[in-house]
């Protein structure tokens, strides 16, 4: 029992961070039909912004995190939309996908060039306290990671469904032409989406880097896992991305403990294949028609 509690807590904590990145995938897809294959690098990069704040500007941790958030909003939000998505989108989804792959490589190699190829320690933002829960060691860090991720995603859901801006964003995602006729500033709504994605990536980065360490290559695994989580949960539903992220976190841990550590990386992919075969729209996703 203790072992299962431990696996569930660790899996949910890791999964909630995957979910943050996965939600970003779904947001951008819904707002602008952008499949962002640089999403993993979007999660890797803010940790280095924070480290720049701490090591080069001499900022304390929390101001450095705020500095990282600002840079992320500017670079991963505004600049990404203006310099890559807007010029590429009229040419279709595929060129944009390739552009985001190129962007991911550029970000990765730039971090390697500027900050070095070795992993960097990243300060923990939560205490390292460990509690004994029915024989399992449950760390405060895991609980806080889970809580912060859930709050971020819950807050986003509330924002989208309960505020005027949120509903305008949903309207812009569902039918931009009609939304525009109704007086919604669609371009601004899309920009908000990109900014939210950058903010979620920053939160994920700050939560995961104390455990995974800050490294230029972190985005490779994170991007893939988040993409799978988004598909498994439903690419067009935020709650689907949340469920997908949590599910993959738990399955990864369960398979590593009870099946084999050597095949753990294959488990999310097997899940992905099963979902595509049995429920292509994802666990919580809705069917989308496409006409040619």
């Amino acid at each position: 029992m203790a072992e299962l509690i431990q696996i569930l807590v660790s899996g949910l904590a890791a999964g909630s961070i995957y979910a943050l990145a996965a939600v970003g995938f779904t947001l951008l897809w819904q707002a602008s039909q952008t499949i962002n294959f640089a999403q993993g690098e979007f999660v890797m990069l803010p940790a280095f912004f924070v480290l720049v704040g701490v090591h080069f500007l001499g900022l304390p941790l929390w101001p450095a995190i705020f500095f990282g958030l600002l840079l992320s909003l500017l670079i991963l939000g505004v600049a990404f939309k203006r310099l890559i998505v807007e010029p590429m989108l009229p040419h279709g989804t595929l060129p944009l996908v390739i552009a985001t792959i190129a962007l991911g490589l550029l970000l990765k190699e730039s971090v390697k060039e500027f900050y070095g190829a070795t992993a960097q320690p990243f300060p923990a933002i939560f205490p390292q306290t460990v509690y004994n829960v029915m024989g399992a060691s449950v760390s405060l860090q895991d609980i806080c990671n889970l809580a912060v991720s859930m709050l971020a995603i819950g807050g986003l859901q509330l924002f989208l469904s309960r505020t005027r801006t949120g509903r305008c964003m949903q309207a812009s995602a569902q039918n931009p032409a009609v939304a525009e006729i109704l007086g919604v500033n669609v371009k601004r709504m899309v920009l908000y989406t990109f900014l939210i994605n950058a903010a979620l990536a920053t939160i994920a980065s700050v939560l995961i880097s104390p455990i995974y360490l800050a490294k230029f290559s972190n985005g490779e695994t994170l991007g893939l896992v988040a993409f799978i989580a988004a598909i498994v949960g439903g690419f067009n539903q935020i709650r689907g991305a949340l469920v997908g992220g949590l599910l993959i976190g738990v399955i990864d841990n369960l398979s590593a403990v009870y099946i084999s550590a050597e095949y753990r990386a294959a488990m999310p992919l097997l899940l992905l294949i099963a979902i595509i075969l049995l429920r292509p729209q994802g666990l919580l996703g809705t069917k989308e028609g496409r006409s040619v």
Binding site: E3, Q6, I7, S10, G11, A14, I211, Y212, S217, N218, T221, D252, N253, A256, V257, A261, E262, R264, A265
Partner: peptide, 15 residues
């Protein structure tokens, strides 16, 4: 307990 190169999550291995 074998682990993979560049593995990031060691929760299961520690457990």
């Amino acid at each position: 307990i074998p682990t993979e190169q560049a593995q990031t999550d060691f929760s299961a291995d520690v457990l």
